[in-house]
C-alpha cells in the first residue's frame, strides 16, 4: 500500500475515533455524573440516605457493567436502530458506547465524590447549607481533581471499547486494525494503528494527570 494512501486512511480513522470517543464520553458523562452523585448521596453514609433508590440504581449499574462490551454492542442493536436509524458506522457505535460506559463513569464519579472529607461535609451542614448546594458547591468542586483523573481513565477505556466497533463497521482506528490487519493479514497497517492508539492513550492520560495536578490545591 502506498504511504500516502495509508496516511490518508489513518488520518480518517483518527478523526472518526476522536469523534466517537469524544461524543460518547461527553454524553456518557451527562448520564454518569448525576447518576454517580445520586449513588453517593443515597448511600447510608451519604447526605440523603435512601436505601431503596441506592440498591435499585446500584443493581442496574452493576448489571450493565457486567455485560461484555461486544455482547452489549450486539444486544442493543434494536435500540441503536431506533435512536440513530442504523446499526452500522461510527454514529451507530456511539449509542452502545454510551450505554456501556455511563455505568462505569457513574461508579468512577461515585468513588471520587466519596473521597470528599466527611468532616468538611459536616462543617457545611453545620452552616445550614441545603443539600443541593452541598452537591454543587462542595462535593463537585472538592472532588474536582479526582473527577478529572477519573475522566482521563474513562476516556481511555472508551477508546478501547471503540476499537471493537470495527466489527460493526465504524471507520475508526480499531476498525482499520481489524479490517486490514486481521482480515487481510496486513501486519504493518495493524502495527501502525496500534501504535497510534498507544500514543492517543498516553496523551489522554498525561493531559489528565497534568490538569489534575494543576487544579488540585491540596498539594503544593
Amino acid at each position: 500500500m502506498e504511504i500516502l494512501k495509508l496516511a490518508q486512511l489513518m488520518l480518517d480513522g483518527l478523526g472518526e475515533t476522536m469523534y466517537m470517543v469524544l461524543v460518547s464520553t461527553s454524553i456518557a458523562y451527562v448520564i454518569g455524573l448525576p447518576l454517580g452523585i445520586v449513588l453517593c448521596i443515597t448511600d447510608k453514609e451519604g447526605i440523603r440516605p435512601n436505601r431503596v433508590l441506592n440498591a435499585v440504581l446500584g443493581f442496574i449499574v452493576n448489571m450493565l457493567r457486567s455485560v461484555p462490551f461486544l455482547i452489549l454492542l450486539v444486544a442493543i442493536m434494536p435500540f441503536t436502530r431506533k435512536v440513530v436509524g442504523t446499526t452500522i458506522g461510527s454514529t451507530a457505535t456511539i449509542v452502545p458506547l454510551i450505554v456501556g460506559s455511563a455505568p462505569f463513569i457513574a461508579r468512577m464519579v461515585e468513588s471520587s465524590v466519596k473521597e470528599v472529607d466527611s468532616g468538611v461535609i459536616e462543617a457545611v451542614q453545620s452552616m445550614g447549607t441545603p443539600d443541593f448546594k452541598i452537591i454543587t458547591k462542595v462535593l463537585i468542586p472538592e472532588a474536582k481533581p479526582s473527577l478529572i483523573m477519573g475522566a482521563a481513565i474513562a476516556i481511555t477505556t472508551i477508546l478501547g471499547y471503540s476499537a471493537l466497533a470495527g466489527f460493526t463497521g465504524g471507520g475508526c482506528l480499531g476498525a482499520i486494525a481489524v479490517n486490514y490487519g486481521y482480515y487481510r493479514y496486513k501486519t504493518d497497517v495493524m502495527l501502525v494503528t496500534v501504535l497510534l492508539l498507544v500514543i492517543i492513550v498516553q496523551i489522554f492520560q498525561e493531559v489528565g494527570m497534568y490538569i489534575t495536578r494543576k487544579t488540585d490545591k491540596r498539594i503544593k
Binding site: D117, V120, S126, E142
Partner: peptide
C-alpha cells in the same frame, strides 16, 4: 444552624478554595 456556628478539631476547610 446558621445561628450556631461550629468549629472542629480537624478544621474542615474546603481544600479547593
Amino acid at each position: 444552624r446558621r445561628q450556631m456556628s461550629m468549629i472542629f478539631q480537624g478544621f474542615n476547610l474546603l481544600s479547593q478554595r
